[in-house]
């Protein structure tokens, strides 16, 4: 039994118009309804880092939002740890693309957001401190998010998510909007964190290299309506390097081709 099971998941966004527009509709509108996810069935193991790739606008984020319980599926079910997902829960924490931190709370308060239930102040403080140190932001506890750089903000968000010790970590394009170096460092940090904690992690990305370097498993979705084009376990040793690993390099070219770029630059 997989840790996460997605069975026959379909999502249709309802538009206002109910009559069909055009019989030969290339995007398969049903009236004004848009089919976003089409009969997706996937299973992920406990502790895996799964990278989901796909062309932009293909419904990757929608898939994540359904798994997190923010949106109901039109059809099919999502199970996390055997439980059908029906509402958001602090067992699956969503790390937002950007700006998920509360700007009116300090770093310390943000990280403590999921630890409100801990009555004992000393235990709580220790726990917050532990995660603040884990993302190397000690001495920044009293800063407000906008006083930090983009990379630091992502790290705070990561600490906030990890502090509640969720079953599942869901990251929607965690590196978007970061400069190249910060992106690389952040990626390394996420991989190290995952090696260390072995927490089931779903990452949506449009960066093929990110997916291949980070993932234990890679899922490629087709354009809208999304269907699973490829699901592949990546059993390459870490740290991964395209040049030293011809298999990885070949897979990279294949995926580039799959996503419509014939020559991997």
């Amino acid at each position: 039994m997989s840790h996460i099971r997605i069975d026959n998941l379909t999502k249709v966004y309802m538009g206002r118009r109910s009559r069909p527009r055009n019989i030969h509709d290339p995007e398969e509108h049903f009236g004004d309804n848009i089919l976003v996810l089409n009969d997706i069935t996937l299973g992920f193991e406990e502790g895996e880092m799964v990278c989901i790739l796909g062309p932009s606008g293909c419904g990757k984020s929608t898939l994540l939002r359904i798994i997190a319980g923010f949106e109901p599926p039109t059809n099919g079910t999502v199970r996390v740890g055997g439980q059908v997902v029906s509402a958001p829960s602090d067992q699956s924490i969503f790390v937002f693309q950007q700006g998920g931190l509360f700007p009116w709370m300090t770093v310390y308060e943000n990280v403590g957001l999921g630890l409100r239930h801990i009555r004992d102040a000393a235990t709580k403080h220790e726990r917050i401190q532990e995660y603040v140190e884990m993302v190397e932001l000690e001495a920044f506890e009293d800063y407000y998010p906008h006083q930090l750089s983009g990379g630091m903000q992502r790290r705070v968000e990561l600490a906030r998510a990890l502090a509640v010790n969720p079953d599942l970590l869901i990251m929607d394009e965690p590196f978007s909007g970061l400069d190249f170096l910060t992106h690389m460092k952040m990626r390394e940090e996420v991989v190290n964190m995952h090696e260390f904690l072995r927490k089931t992690t779903l990452v949506v990305t449009h960066d093929i290299d990110d997916a291949l370097i980070m993932g234990d498993r890679i899922v490629v979705l087709s354009g809208r309506p999304s269907a699973v084009k490829l699901m592949h376990a990546l059993n390459f040793p870490r740290p991964r390097d395209f040049e030293k690993n011809p298999g990885l390099s070949r897979l990279r070219s294949e995926i580039f081709l799959m996503l419509g770029v014939p020559y991997a630059v």
Binding site: A87, P88, S89, G99, G100, L113, G114, V164
Partner: peptide
């Protein structure tokens, strides 16, 4: 920002917490 309400739901804010925090 609607994201904040999703964060609140994610961290299981009660109605009162959503209001005050």
């Amino acid at each position: 920002n609607p994201t904040y309400f999703q964060v609140a739901a994610n961290f299981r804010f009660s109605y009162q917490e959503t209001l005050t925090r």
